[in-house]
Design a protein around this nucleic acid. Structure first.
Lengths: 354, 354
DNA sequence: CTGAAAGCGCTAACAC
DNA sequence: GTGTTAGCGCTTTCAG
């Protein structure tokens, strides 16, 4: 009676049949201009919103979506991302969404290529992936578009690629935040460093955005003289690596370090633990086991949580909404930049696990 | 075909009709023991899960829920809470959830009583409220239970009251976090204060939990001597108030203040701005206009976001899920303790508004 | 005690 | 071009 308007009601008001209203709503054509206009104006006037529950019920197809992610055994971050996919898969299975996960080696572009070919071969109705290899991802997306397979993107965005939606964080602002957390309320002049310690290939886009933000923060600091250091180190040269790091950490001017990779963080933490913190503030990324343990010990002062699990969870959820309910999606959903300390760690962990 | 099993399938396997299966599922009785057992065993064997979408469609009743909140014009915090209710109301109206909001004066217990009587009189199918007056809320909940009206609770919990669910934060941990943010990495001995500046009546539970956490944090600090001050001030005695605050802020030992009320925060900020910050760290609550402006100016260093909008949004959402889908709810959903600084403010605001 | 059948709002196939 | 109708899975009513 009150409130909700149904297609039937619209039809009556426009003096047409429900079928015609449906055709207008879905722009399926085969409607006279006159009817179209009449229905349209009533839709707008009444602010009609479809009952998504009913819509999906009438439709109940089976959908196959593929999640294409870095190997979860290689990296704890991606293990968390996988958990998100699995949780989402459980949540949506009863609505006919099947999720198949494919993996690739995060240090091997050719492995990504192989996997994305496998993904395409499955002819899924939707794809979720993390485009950590820029050019290869673009190739992949081109194929997706030609095959009309909608794809959602997590972790890092490639704005021009034409994805259905992006779920992640603003990496530039993340860099700014990291810088602020090193500097805040210390108001100290001195050296602040951002470290990229990577295995072999590195995900340049991801790093450079954060680095830009980091540097820009200090550009705007006029009250003290802050020296900004950006250091790229390669894990495979263990000897040089440790020498360089020791040199850096022994610099009495060093006031803070932000480390962008998980392996890097654990190395720096170990060294800091050995040398003593000496008032060097440290920021790292994500609720990884190692990071958490060093946060509790007070070696790491702040973690910035990228919430990989929620990223993939939301990604699958959005894909499901798109496929089942034909819900329209925003081009990006930017997660808030979450600051984790010892005291709010538990509340974030609990939240993530419920 | 594959995967999902329908009631129809169960019926066929048990050689009964869909109606009988439904009666078993809902324990509506009127089923012979024999049929009951047969159906039950098949339900378990197959791990049947109902299609919630279809269930709700077949049910589509109209539900009335009442949100009973402090007056939004009195307080920006509750204005944000109201926005959450309104957004949720819009989201769920098409599914037959009608939301009516009633208000009460947050400084007047009798006004709460009057409002909750009005709420009961509406005979709603569900209630959402913030039990800021402890005893009065208990009375209210007793009535709700006797009338079998399920109620969800936001802001602060009364664990024994038998609510459907609680949505909010752990206030004790919130106090710990506030203390940590004042102290972290300063590693300074000195005075740390928690201020409760209230109008007339104050919500003792809410405050005391935070205060307990605040004090306990410093109890565990062994490395420095930290002096903890807990100050209750009454807004209505303006002269005394300002004198006391001035005295506090001029104490050279003072290293940090946490203010638990919005009006208190803006007063302290004004004084700090006048006197100069002098390295006094300040923490306050929530993304209120005043707080945000002082955060940007650097008077406030950290805000702890209680996310009132999302609390009520989630509250209504859970009620809706309970009423429409008969989804079971957890007894509490504890939001993460969100730390806001200048640099991640925008990302949180954006997230909240999408 | 049980089965058959209608109907929730929407979509798509099929008549006209 | 347009209207009619069957049916998605579940609930509920009504016969039997």
């Amino acid at each position: 009676m009150s409130g909700t308007i149904r297609i039937k009601d619209i039809a009556k008001m426009a003096q047409v049949s429900p079928g015609t209203v449906d055709r207008v709503i879905h722009k399926r054509g085969e409607v006279s201009e006159e009817s179209y206009k009449k229905v349209m104006s009533i839709l707008e006037k009444t602010g009609y919103k479809p009952n998504l529950i009913a819509r999906s019920l009438g439709n109940l197809k089976k959908f196959q979506v593929v999640a294409l992610l870095p190997n979860a055994t290689q990296d704890e971050y991606w293990k968390m991302a996988l958990e998100g996919v699995q949780k989402a898969a459980g949540d949506w299975s009863q609505y006919g969404i099947g999720v198949k996960t494919l993996f690739f080696d995060m240090y091997d572009k050719s492995s990504f290529k192989k996997s994305f070919k496998a993904a395409i071969k499955l002819e899924p109705d939707g794809i979720l992936t993390a485009p950590i290899f820029y050019h290869e991802a673009l190739d992949f997306f081109k194929i997706c578009k030609s095959k009309q397979i909608p794809f959602a993107v997590v972790n890092n965005n490639i704005p021009t690629a034409g994805s259905l939606t992006f779920i992640g964080q603003n990496l530039y602002e993340s860099g700014i935040l990291g810088a602020e957390l090193l500097h805040i309320d210390q108001r100290k002049s001195g050296t602040y460093a951002i470290l990229h310690i990577y295995d072999d290939i590195h995900n340049s886009v991801h790093f450079s955005e954060k680095e830009k933000g980091f540097k820009d923060y200090f550009k705007n600091i006029k009250t003290e003289k802050c020296n900004v250091l950006s250091v790229d180190l390669n894990l495979s040269h263990a000897a040089t690596l440790e020498k360089e790091l020791n040199q850096l950490l022994n610099d009495p001017d060093l006031k803070g370090v932000m480390v962008t990779t998980s392996k890097g963080a654990s190395i720096v933490c170990k060294l800091l633990e050995k040398h003593g913190k000496n008032g060097i503030r440290m920021v790292a990324y994500d609720l990884l086991e190692q990071n958490i343990s060093y946060l509790k010990k007070g070696i790491i002062d702040f973690l910035i949580n990228q919430n990989p699990k929620r990223q993939t969870l939301t990604g699958i959820e959005h894909l499901a909404n798109y496929l089942i309910f034909k819900k329209e999606l925003a081009s990006s959903y930017l997660f808030p930049l979450e600051i984790i300390t010892r005291s709010n760690l538990r509340s974030h962990q609990d939240w993530m696990n419920q």
